[in-house]
């Protein structure tokens, strides 16, 4: 069997705020394999972004990883010193963000920022680094890279800025690229360009990608494996085809029926009742039970574990078989 290059087990990251403890990530497990894309999908406040920040250990001063392990290259990242972590950040594991304008420093040119990233982790002089920067910009599809390298972030369009961010992240040939909602701020046609570019670069560099998004479509088209998160917890984890063809958690199942789709005719969208829970007041028992149509008494008090129910398919639900029945009924309705 293939060895994962990153494996996260039982990760828990809490924030100690004035208003109480926010259990932003409260039990997440997954493996990332070389050359593959792991998708993390969920709604706002589900902890998907905090998961990625925990891997890089760039939480703010209120946040702490309280439990679990993040093993990268046989090293547990939660245990190593800040200095060793700094060597991994940007070099082995790089990250791109939703809004490149925030992540890029407005007072330096694109070139200066890429050169800085290169010089930080590689033993090259500035002239070589600048040449490498131009090559990178060409590689990510920025036209006239020799000219663009001396421009400031605000002179580029949103799509071009995201390309520049990717160039910067790729400067040290990372083994893992974390992409946190990389296309959410972009127009659809630009989003398609960027996702295409990421796929092509992934093939070329053989890197693993952790793709964080709220968009089920982006997941379906780009991920190999998927973690579905709800209220800080991984509720379902399997490969992408199984997830979409055979979702077993009531939340995943509901979500797939709640989104308007281009590929099928829908008479009415499925209603997941209630609201996305506030991280300060997560419900007891199964975090999804107040919104779940299959919930029973047990779900209110007891917390289900993330368990393997079928080969390689992990689900956090006591009554996942009920979803099976709902699916059968649905299939029956169609005939």
């Amino acid at each position: 069997m293939k060895e994962p290059i990153l494996s996260v087990r039982n990760l828990r990251t809490y924030f100690y705020t004035e208003d109480g403890i926010v259990k932003a990530v409260d039990g997440v497990d997954f493996d990332v394999f070389q050359g593959e894309t792991l998708g993390i999908v969920g709604e706002s406040g589900c902890g998907k972004s905090v998961t990625s920040l925990s891997i890089l250990r760039i939480l703010d001063e209120k946040g702490r990883i309280v439990e679990g392990s993040i093993v990268f290259d046989n090293v547990d990242l939660t245990k190593i010193s800040e200095e060793s972590m700094r060597k991994i950040r940007g070099k082995d594991i790089a990250m791109i963000f939703q809004e490149p304008m925030v992540a890029l420093n407005p007072v330096f040119t694109i070139g200066e920022q890429i050169v800085e990233a290169i010089v930080l982790h590689q033993k090259v002089d500035e002239t070589t680094a600048k040449k490498m920067a131009v090559d990178l910009l060409r590689k990510v599809g920025i036209p006239e890279p020799e000219k663009r390298v001396d421009e400031y972030p605000h002179e580029l369009s949103g799509g071009m800025r995201q390309r520049a961010m990717i160039a910067m992240a790729l400067s040290c040939k990372p083994k893992i690229l974390i992409a946190d909602e990389p296309t959410t701020a972009l127009d659809v046609t630009i989003q398609a360009q960027i996702m295409e570019l990421m796929k092509q670069l992934q093939r070329e560099y053989g890197m693993a990608i952790i793709l964080i998004t709220h968009d089920m479509g982006v997941i379906a088209e780009n991920a190999d494996r998927v973690v579905v998160m709800y209220a800080g917890k991984a509720v379902e984890y399997t490969d992408v085809k199984t997830l979409f063809n055979d979702p077993k958690h009531p939340y995943t199942w509901g979500l797939l029926h709640a989104i308007p789709r281009l590929d099928i005719e829908q008479t009415r969208l499925y209603n997941i009742p209630g609201i996305v829970p506030n991280p300060l007041k997560f419900p007891t028992g199964c975090k999804f039970h107040p919104r779940c149509e299959f919930a029973e008494e047990k779900c209110k008090s007891e917390e289900p574990e993330l368990k393997e129910v079928v080969n390689g398919h992990l689900v956090r639900c006591f009554f996942w078989e009920k979803v099976e029945q709902a699916k059968k009924k649905e299939a029956g309705d169609k005939q």
């Binding site: 989003q191 479509g217 379906a220 088209e221 085809k241 979409f244 989104i259 789709r261 590929d263």
Partner: peptide
């Protein structure tokens, strides 16, 4: 082009 750019939540 716009239609083809929309990601479809169906990996099949």
């Amino acid at each position: 082009a716009l239609m083809s750019a929309i990601p479809i939540p169906n990996p099949n």
